[in-house]
Design a protein around this nucleic acid. Structure first.
Lengths: 239, 239
DNA sequence: GATTTGATTTGATATATGTCAAAAACCGTG
DNA sequence: CACGGTTTTTGACATATATCAAATCAAATC
């Protein structure tokens, strides 16, 4: 019964902020849920192109994406930029800033978006009282590390077509996890941004996508993507 | 006075285990130091080539490297491997495993090494009581995320020579931070491993090192490296 | 110390991806 | 709806890095 209560309360906490990543796996009592809700009250909207934060900004909060789509990028002194990730609803952004109390990358909305601000000091305090929240925070940070290692593998040892395939399949899975079609979705980023993320030039991205289309794996027209042969794409990665 | 006591106690804690990264910046009371010491009692030695853990192993502990040198690598199903990092004394290893309760990479000693095992459950428990320890743990994880983003930048947008330059300068800094010469040290890894880490083939690593030597930036003979012109190397990265 | 094994260097050549350029498609805005 | 700017595609060509191969060198083993 206690179980049932926590679960339904959990739903409330999550529906208020869509904190898929932060809330879902944590088993909280109603009182604890209230505390988490209190923490995540501050919401803000961002228009496409707006910065959520910039490299160098003082660190204060993590952000949970309620709706929308962001990219994060690091800038080299010589102007080169590297997109380090694309984040969607339910994901937590800003973890890099804990290390130095300053953000180390830019976060930019790729479409109109809403985020919950979570003051990190409060989150730390609360997670001292709620072990399951504490552990979950650690898992989120660890998951980010694992994700980054996957990108290293991709950048360090895959060819252009494999990188694109892995990228599209990853988006597909993440849309599926949110209840959207895994086979058909809009890309929210430019070829240039895809290229930066994957360590390729935009022309290579375009050519490779055209090639995947010719071979019947995908249908792409501008930003509208359809995955025609997910299994085929997957198996082409394992070769 | 309290300050002085903690500091000297801190020294004891660190000298016992050389936990540069875990202890140094944390301001602990003597009692707290004792608790941390208690946590880090379990030490083990590894011979060159031995595994500290393997991908898939159940997660139980983080490890602080006391002495020696490790590499971490992820394996692709098709046998391709990607070295994701080289870790030296004072660094913490195993953070990736928190996310799934299983290690996601292999950690292998590149020379005879000693580590402190830190049961993660105890670390979480202790960090609930000691806020500065909690915050420090978060910083360590965040620092790992930032490090990984730097490698993404390197892999995604630098050319072979820049990658090697950045790699050598990074090693140099880390040796300097440990009181060793920043200009002269032994590489502990093969050209192959460097190449895997930097997304290059071993022949390219060898050629690029030879080229840096010809141009007077470094002196390299097998694993013995001397950085002859650190400033020059640095400025060649900014171009 | 001889022998085997693995690591490194270097050369010749191949190839994937980058670069430059131009046209076409798309999008937001007035 | 037309305009101007951006994004995307596609082609021709350049180049950095990979591949294959062989010789040398260092290190581990008996």
């Amino acid at each position: 019964m206690q179980q049932a209560i926590s679960k339904s309360s959990l739903k409330i906490a999550c529906s208020s902020c869509n904190l898929r990543e932060l809330c879902l796996p944590v088993n909280l009592s109603p009182a604890e849920v209230a505390q988490v809700e209190n923490l995540t009250q501050h919401k803000r909207s961002y228009r496409r192109g707006e910065y959520l934060y910039r490299s160098g900004d003082r660190f204060q909060s993590l952000y949970a994406i309620r709706t929308g789509f962001f990219k994060t990028q690091v800038l080299h002194e010589d102007g080169r930029e590297q997109v380090t990730g694309f984040q969607m609803a339910g994901e937590i952004i800003g973890l890099d800033a804990i290390s130095t109390d300053a953000h180390t990358c830019d976060a930019i909305a790729l479409e109109d978006s809403e985020v919950c601000e979570m003051p990190f000091a409060s989150l730390e305090e609360l997670s001292r009282d709620i072990p399951s929240l504490q552990h979950h925070l650690h898992k989120i940070m660890s998951r980010e590390i694992v994700r980054d290692q996957g990108i290293m593998l991709l950048l360090g040892s895959m060819r252009a077509e494999e990188r694109l395939g892995a990228f599209l399949l990853n988006l597909s899975q993440r849309y599926a996890a949110r209840g959207y079609s895994p086979k058909s979705f809009q890309l929210r980023m430019t070829r240039q941004e895809i290229g930066s993320y994957l360590g390729l030039k935009l022309e290579t991205v375009s050519r490779t996508l055209s090639n995947l289309q010719q071979r019947g794996f995908i249908q792409i027209r501008n930003r509208s993507l359809e995955l025609l042969d997910i299994a085929g794409l997957q198996s082409s990665l394992k070769t």
